[in-house]
Computed example of a mutant assay.
Amino acid sequence: MRILLPPSEGKTDPHRGTSLELASLSFPELSEPRRLVLDALTTLCTTDPCGACATLGLTSNQSAEVVRNQHLWSAPTAPAWQIYSGVLYGQLDAASLTVAQRTRLAGRVWIASALFGFVGFTDRIPAYRLSSETTLPGIGSLARFWRDSLTPLLLRVDESELIVDLRSGSYVKLGPLPDSMAQRAVATRVLQKMPLGPPKLITHFNKATKGRILRAVAQHPGKLRTLDDLAQLIATLGADVILIPPTRTGQPQQLDIIVTGAS
């Protein structure tokens, strides 16, 4: 099973650690595009901080994010699972997992990143601020920039592996799944049960539920090979699971996960 995750806007700055080494990251073939984006971002934030705020969608009260981006090459790094600190990663709570459980995730998880393309779960990266919807000077649209590099990487996933896409829509655009992989891929939606009417799409519970699913995957002692295996695991978390077949060729299956308001 290959799990594709979004990053998080919230990030934790490491207090110490080695500086960034592109050659040490997963997917070394991405080193050159990573270097181009890093240089474009650090240059923008260093030479035009006000322009950087506008480009990155920051307010004047978030100028510290611009300063953070100025020092990405020299800033301390930590494993990606420690850097990302949003709701999904908070519910995963990887620090409380065993080493074996984190290793299990490291073998399965790819994290989409506007700065690095895909990163591995344990890859050492600095904290940064850059969203997938940004248009960077000298780079252009990051979705367009990364697409040609990331989609070919997805084609390398072993044909026996189920691909579970937990990415948000904007991060799917960085590396869309090829149509040829649709039959062995599943996209997920998290919905909330309503007192009246059909379930509704949600935001906070969406991220929290995905984090709990990922934690359950890490703690599951057996093999998770099929969509049925995954659906049964999710059901143990108290959610209803509905599989929706694709409506067109080249579209992945959709797994609707329906939670209560307390989930």
Rank of each mutant, 00 (worst) to 15 (best):
L224W: 05
S141N: 14
R144S: 15
S149P: 06
N206E: 01
A185H: 09
Q219S: 14
L136G: 07
L142F: 02
V119E: 08
T188I: 12
F121R: 11
L201K: 15
S141P: 10
T188L: 13
W146M: 06
A182S: 10
A185I: 09
T188E: 01
Q183L: 09
T203P: 06
A218M: 05
V157L: 12
V164L: 00
K193N: 09
T203F: 13
P198D: 09
I125D: 06
T188M: 11
R212S: 10
E161Y: 01
G211Q: 03
P176F: 00
V217E: 01
P199L: 05
K173C: 05
V157E: 04
V190P: 00
L166Q: 09
T135E: 13
L155D: 14
L177Q: 03
K207E: 09
D165S: 01
E133H: 15
S149N: 13
D123A: 10
G222E: 12
P221T: 13
T122A: 15
V119L: 08
D229G: 11
Y128P: 10
G175M: 06
L154R: 04
P198G: 08
H220E: 05
L142P: 09
K223M: 14
P195I: 10
G169P: 01
P199R: 01
P126Q: 06
A185T: 09
L142N: 09
G169T: 14
L196S: 15
A182L: 00
S131L: 12
D165P: 01
L191C: 11
L196H: 15
E161M: 07
A218N: 08
T209M: 15
D228F: 03
P137M: 08
K200I: 14
T135S: 12
H204L: 11
D148K: 15
G222K: 09
G222T: 11
D165I: 00
R225Q: 12
L191E: 08
P126F: 06
R129I: 07
S149H: 15
S160T: 15
T209N: 04
I139H: 04
A143H: 09
R215N: 03
G169L: 12
L166R: 02
K207W: 10
T151D: 03
L136T: 04
T203N: 12
V186N: 00
F145S: 02
M181H: 11
L136E: 04
S131N: 12
A216I: 06
V172D: 02
P126T: 10
G197T: 14
L166Y: 10
A185K: 10
L230Y: 02
I125C: 09
G197Q: 12
H220R: 07
I213A: 03
L162C: 06
D179A: 15
D148P: 02
V164E: 00
W146P: 09
G197C: 13
S180I: 06
T226F: 04
D179Y: 02
I202F: 03
T203H: 14
G197P: 14
D229M: 08
P221Q: 12
T151Q: 13
K210M: 05
L136D: 06
E161G: 00
L130V: 13
L153E: 01
P137E: 03
A216M: 03
D123I: 11
L174D: 11
R124G: 05
D148A: 14
D148Y: 02
T151V: 07
R129N: 04
W146F: 01
D165K: 00
G175I: 02
A208L: 03
T135Y: 05
L214Q: 03
